[in-house]
Write a protein that binds this DNA or RNA. Structure first.
Lengths: 239, 239
DNA sequence: CGGCCAACCGGACCGGGGTCCGTTTCCCTG
DNA sequence: CAGGGAAACGGACCCCGGTCCGGTTGGCCG
């Protein structure tokens, strides 16, 4: 599943049709996306041996099926391993840890969202004024993560237990941060844009959103309105 | 450790010297603070048997010492149990889970902070205009959690793995949210105050702050300035 | 004082994440 | 095609959080 790779631009040569905002230049060729299975932005990994590649896709298929059937929260490494008829060690070798597996499962969805705000139609994509894109970005993220909340939630929880790096500095997060920062700057916002981006992105945090929706009974519409209001206050009047 | 209980007002009768903002009325007598060991706001728990109480304090002492020596991250339930010469089951019976133990260890610190913004001197306490208190609140939380970040971080991570309730709806968090909401309203902010409070509090999240400081090299001063800027944008010009 | 029961205690047990290392497989090179 | 070494495999193993239940103890009541 989710293996076919839509060609992503290689940093260095700038393809305006795919990356009109020049955002991808922020990501050095190797680093950032090196986490197992996340090749959504730049290059590939070193190339797997045939059996390894075969196992990898089989593991992803099995994992996706199990997640579908029992919920991502109940996905266990051992369960995936035995269902795929491989040893537990193989799963860990391939994905590093449970977080890595979940992130790999999210890879496909993540690319969809990325494509939408990197090169999709307005108001999310490049052909719209930054303030509009800012608003659209929030609602897009809210809806996207809500649509796939099982996986996103499981991944967030798994990442939280370990180092915060996986949670606050995963490639998708970094890309979103850069994107937000770019939009804020273009919208004429002055001040500590980097920090502002962090704050804004924090308000879209899946665990928070889920809590507000599930436990506090807030509707997605209310959260979207809240985002628009927030953007208005932050990027609105004075800049 | 941390057992002596500074008398907290009982909801129903309103003691303006301790709760000038009337915030505590939001918390029903029993519920909210019922988590083991967190008696920081309202009443006590049902009263423990003598041996249980003895064990409880001993466990807290031992846990505090171990956390001091090896870092809260390395605190294990079994380690605490054996160091305190009791069975593992006893620790779980008393504190529910690891999160509960860590929260109990934080109880004392948490009361200090609460006292400061509930009834302390200005600009944090009641004798200051809401906008000033808003600013002071952020910097106070930032400094407070940073000062005790080992424990706060460990607690946050432990809470994250389980239900998000412990993370987004623990008694301390609820109190902070109410406080922020109250201040925002008094500062004349219109709109979805509850959601705004969530967003603002989110920007002070210990795991995020720690990541920004540790990994991204931001200084606490920068974060404090960011908070002040954010408050200005949110509560500043129009309301 | 004695008995009774709820509360408490302890530690065996389980499940799941993560590690390790001896064995097997692939693939490149000669 | 054969050989060798790097990569991958598998599953036993460890650790830790959390559960369970048979045995014990404290404190109240008759």
């Amino acid at each position: 599943m989710t293996e076919p790779l839509p060609p992503f631009p290689v940093p260095g040569e700038h393809d305006p049709s795919q990356d009109p905002d020049g955002l991808l230049d922020l990501f050095p060729a190797s680093g950032v996306t090196g986490i197992t299975g996340i090749t959504g932005i730049t290059g590939e990994q070193p190339r797997l041996r045939a059996d390894a590649a075969r196992n990898r896709t089989r593991l992803l298929e099995v994992a996706a099926r199990l997640a579908e059937e029992c919920g991502a929260a109940k996905l266990t490494m051992e369960g995936v391993a035995s269902a795929a008829q491989v040893g537990k060690g193989t799963v860990f070798r391939r994905f590093g840890d449970r977080t890595g597996l979940l992130l790999a499962l999210l890879d496909h969805h993540e690319r969809e969202l990325q494509a939408a705000f990197l090169s999709g139609p307005p108001p999310l994509g490049p052909d719209a004024p930054p303030a509009d894109r800012l608003r659209a970005f929030g609602t897009a993220v809210l809806r996207h993560e809500h649509a796939h909340r099982d996986l996103y939630l499981a991944a967030a929880r798994a990442a939280a237990r370990a180092d915060a790096v996986r949670r606050h500095a995963s490639p998708p997060t970094l890309l979103r941060l850069s994107h937000l920062g770019m939009l804020l700057r273009r919208a004429g916002v002055r001040g500590d844009v980097e920090l502002l981006a962090q704050t804004l992105l924090g308000s879209l945090d899946i665990t928070l959103v889920d809590h507000l929706v599930t436990r506090r009974g807030m509707t997605l519409e209310r959260l979207e309105a809240g985002w628009n209001d927030l953007v208005g206050r932050v990027a609105g009047p004075q800049g």
